[in-house]
Every structure is written in C-alpha cells, then in structure tokens.
Design a protein around this nucleic acid. Structure first.
Lengths: 330, 330
DNA sequence: TTGAAAGCGGTACCAT
DNA sequence: ATGGTACCGCTTTCAA
C-alpha cells in the first residue's frame, strides 16, 4: 500500500487539503503544523503521486526531449545543459530516444503526447513530414535544438552560415587556398545548405573560386570521412579539409593515415562540433566548437519565457579550439 | 481545450465507458462501433491522458532508467536494447540522467519516484548509500544493468570474473607472460574486485605469479590510460596490458604513441567493453566485447517476468573481437 | 488557518 | 454490447 496525502492527514489530524497546501507550499498555513506534516511525510516515506497532481492541475511543467537513437555524442552535452537549468527553474525532463524508422517514430511521439507536456524539444532531429504533422496538430510548444530550421519552428543553434566564415578565415590566414568541405552535401538539410553557402561565400570573400568537386559527402558518418580520402586519392588536390562533424573528421584523419598522408603536414583538418571525441585522436583535432551546453540552457529559459514563434532563431557562440591538425603554409 | 474520452463519447452517441473499452481493447464491444470510434478519435486528434490512466489503474507499465550523466558511451547501446523490447512488450521507459553529486542524485530520484513506476533500472551506476536507502524504502523493483552487484540487488551484466580468464588465456596463447591490468583498482567496486580476482586467478592457472605493481589505476577515464604509460616508463616492464574500459584503452594507446612505444610491436593492448569507440583508433582495438544490447533486452524481459531477488544474477556473453593491437610473440 | 467538496480523465465493476 | 457509477490521489475554490 502506498502512502497518500490522506494517510498523512489522518495521522496529523488534518484534512487532505491542508496537507496538500503545505507540501506544495501554496496558500496559507501555520509554520508549526507545516513542520509537523513535513516530518510526518518524511517518516512515512511519502512520495507525491505526480500523475494525480498532473491530472488535477491543468498546467504541466514537463518538457519532452526527443533524442535521436543513432549515437550523436553531443546530445549528452545538450541534455546536461537542459538538465541543469530545468532543475533550477522547476521543470522536469522526459527524455525519449527516437528511432529513424517512421513507424517507431510515430509510436514514440504518440506515447509522449499521452503525457501532458509543456513542450517538445527536438535534438538534432531530421523529422519526417508526417511525424511533424502529428506534433503540429497536437498544439504543443515545439523547439529544435542544434538543428537550425529557419521558419519551420523555433530553433536554438549555432549560426551555421557565419561559422563557415570563421573557419575559412582561419584556414586562409594559415595560408590555405585549396579547401574541401566534407559531409554537408545533403540538399534537404537546412544546416547543410547554410554551411555550403557560407563556405562558398567565405571563399569568394577571399577571391577564391570554389571548386564544386571539393564539396562532398552527405552522411554524418565515420565512413564518409574514410570515403572522402579514398575518392580524392594521393596526392590530394587540396591542402585543407573541413569535416562537418567530429565523427567525419576522425574518418578523414584515419583515412589519411591509412593512405600514408601526413596530418597536418600533407593535409590540414578542421572539424565542426568539437566534442570530447576530438581529444582522443592523435594529433588532437582543431575544431570549430559549438556551445552545446549553452544551447541546452537556452532551450529551457526560452521555453520558460514562452516568447516563441516559428521564426524565432537563437544563436550560440562558436569557439575556435586549436588542436594539432592545422598547419601553417608558407 | 484538449480532447477527452467524453468528447468522443458525445460525438459517437456512446458512453465514456464504451469508448474506453474500445480504445484500450479490453472487454466486449462490436467491431462496427469500434471502427467508428477509432476513426473519430483520430479525426479529433485525441491522445489518451496517461496520467489519468495511471491514476485509475493501480499497476504501472513505466520503467525508470537511471543513466549516469558522465558520458559512458555504452549506455546508449543498453538503452537501445531496452527500448526495443519495451516497445514490443508494451512498457514505457522513463529515462533520467543522474549526476554524481549527492544532492542532485536525491532530487532526481525523488522526482522519479513521484511517477508510479514498475521498476527502476540503474545503468552502470555506483550508487551512493543514502540514495540507495531511499530507493530501497520506496519498495520498488530494482535492477542493476552492466554493473554486477552481488547480493545487493539483482543485476544483469557480463561475468566479470570469468571474462578475465578469456582475456588472459588469449594473451597467454599469443605468447604474453607479463601482463598489466589498468583501471580496476577501486576497492569499493564489485566489478573491479571481480576483475582483479579473475585476473590473478587466471594468471595463476598459467603458473604466472602476478605482480601487484601491474594492477594500477582506479578511475574510468582517458587520463588513467595516459597516466599508466607515464608511470611505467619506457621500456615497459610488461608486454601486454588490459584496459578496463574503452576510454582507458584509448588513453593507453595515445600514451604509448606519445612515448614512442609501438602498438602492438612493443605493447599489446586489449580493451574491455568493445563499443564503437574501438573502431575509431589506429590500430583498431582488440576487445573483450560486452553484449550491451542483450543486457538491455534482458533487463526488460526479466522485469516482465518479475522473478527477481537480490541475488538474481544474469550474465550475458562476451565476445573476443580481434583488432590490431595484440601481437603474437615468439 | 483549516475543512468540505467538486473535479481532473480514465478504468472497471455491475447492471441492463 | 453498452451504460451508470464509484474511484484513483491531488488541487483548488469557497466557506467556516
């Protein structure tokens, strides 16, 4: 038998209403009885039945978080950021891992929607159209984190366009003129589109005509990096390469090693993301590091503020983190 | 205004009771009205209010999962395994990331216990005593996954003792006689204790007296691997080393590289865990691979079966996965 | 400051 | 096959 508010009320010689008020710190009560009740609750091993509370209160403070089940190692950092702020502001996170499989996706979403949620936050999810419809119809706050989605729903992310200027400027200043971009070719991804456009424009700014062949690979995978090196062969037609995710860059690094290409002497690599993974390679990867923890925090504060419209776009800073994979050319 | 079962009942000219029966597939009803109701529910955008359902039904099908917030990359694999089976058997997972900080730990647990849960599954968590007390008093099913905890609570894990025989036998057969074990020195961890004991006994079986100095490092961290190499210097007093986790082994590998020690020529490395991380190194790490996905599946089926006692111990298989970090000595 | 009572949305028992 | 109803545990008005 589980302990309810009534049990406490009986023992304390009070009504359930009073106990409720005390335990939730709402309304008026005397501090003296309150102390007694709190102690009693503790002794008796009472835990609020949140389902009952949710049912009774109209407003919910639960935020659903959709995390792609395909391991993206930065999701942890975002969640960590959200978690901290959520605890601080009194929100709860309901984390659900979501498969890429359409059928399963719907099932997960529906079960999520069965809990009354304040909002649903999607981490780096490329959402399927029909799944999106379901969420939209459910009339619930939506927020995309780390995946910039202009005008579809509000999002918190890095400024992917200007990020490319930071990267290209850096490489240019290091003497690089032939630069490739790997893993941002997906035509259907807003992020990839922005990165390609920023890449091209940044090159033009330096009066470099970009070579379309140097933009390659549309999948966010280790294999994409390996493939890229194989495709371009040895010697490589460029001196520097930008990996659109850490895992891609590690593929580039290992591919280079396998092909007898020295990093950074024969090839410079700069990676986008800059998660812990970048510390595990030799040399350590130079990175345009995204501020994932900050994204997580902002996700919560933004939702708490509730000033959201589909074209709300919040940017977090990026940091150029020096590793050992970019050489200075003479 | 959210759609309730009553709204549907009104529109269909039925009672709430009937709609409930139909939507949950319980009790008797005619297929004809059922079809109508289901369609109506769909059209009206109805989602069951799970809180109400939970409150009404005494039994819950929600399983809480405690995941350490410190990035352990195998947690994902376990969760994936749980997720699949859970969906299949009609359970829901409530995932909560838990900090190592005592204060926050309690807060998380309490909020978890506020949802009526069928069980709490702990992934690789070294739980603090007082936190454990809270869980124990809450009178809820407990299960530890991947962290073998003999006689404290039921657990699903690899057989850490016999695993060491597999590893040592393999190294012995490859000609190694001087073997070190890194990252299993924590005296308070059952897993570490079992690994050390298994290591020692496996060596004895081959008539090798173990050298206590060769057991080093108690933290599950990249740095532990780096430190180990530094500590033993060059040339190393052993020909092979066992890393007690992938991240440690990567530290060993990079530490060796930094010190000019060639792997596997000068040093053989075998790692315990065998997650995706092991594919990212050069050479690829040879691993005693744990079956994390299976652990996840078993966690759910075991809970579904409910035949649990504190001394229930379920083992999953381990696989020796050949990489390029173990050399054959002559 | 405290209590009585209605109600949140479903479920399940007992009638019909 | 369907409907009426009590109830799950908590919150919240309103009255005392």
């Amino acid at each position: 038998m589980t302990i309810t508010i009534k049990d406490i009320a009986n023992r304390a010689g009070l009504s359930a209403a009073s106990v409720s008020r005390i335990l939730t710190n709402r309304g008026r009560f005397s501090e003296k009885t309150a102390q007694h009740v709190r102690q009693l609750a503790d002794e008796m091993g009472y835990y609020k039945n949140q389902s009952a509370a949710d049912l009774s209160q109209k407003e919910s403070r639960v935020i659903g978080v959709l995390v792609p089940i395909t391991h993206t190692n930065f999701a942890d950092e975002i969640i960590k950021g959200m978690q901290g702020k959520a605890t601080e502001l009194g929100y709860e996170l309901l984390i659900a891992f979501i498969a890429s499989d359409n059928q399963q996706q719907l099932k997960t979403i529906k079960s999520l929607l069965s809990r009354q949620l304040l909002a649903v936050v999607m981490l780096a999810i490329e959402i399927k159209d029909n799944t999106f419809k379901v969420l939209e119809n459910a009339d619930i706050l939506l927020l995309s984190v780390s995946n910039q989605l202009n005008n579809v729903m509000p999002s918190i992310s890095s400024d992917n366009y200007s990020m490319m200027f930071t990267i290209v400027d850096y490489l240019y200043q290091k003497g690089h003129r032939q630069i490739a971009l790997i893993g941002a070719s997906d035509q259907h991804s807003t992020v990839a589109n922005l990165r390609r456009q920023g890449f091209i424009d940044a090159l033009l700014k330096h009066k470099i005509n970009y070579n379309p062949d140097f933009i390659y690979g549309d999948e966010n995978a280790y294999q994409t990096g390996l493939n890229a090196i194989q495709k371009f062969g040895k010697p490589l037609p460029f001196t520097a390469v930008i990996g659109s995710a850490d895992i891609i860059s590690i593929g580039l690094l290992n591919g280079a090693k396998d092909a007898g290409i020295k990093v950074p002497d024969d090839l410079s690599i700069i990676t986008i993301d800059g998660t812990e993974l970048t510390e595990l390679t030799r040399p350590i990867l130079t990175a345009a590091q995204q501020n994932f923890a900050k994204m997580g925090e902002l996700a919560i504060t933004t939702l708490a503020g509730q000033k959201l419209s589909p074209d709300t776009v919040v940017f977090t800073n990026i940091t150029l983190k020096q590793g050992g994979t970019v050489a200075q050319l003479d």
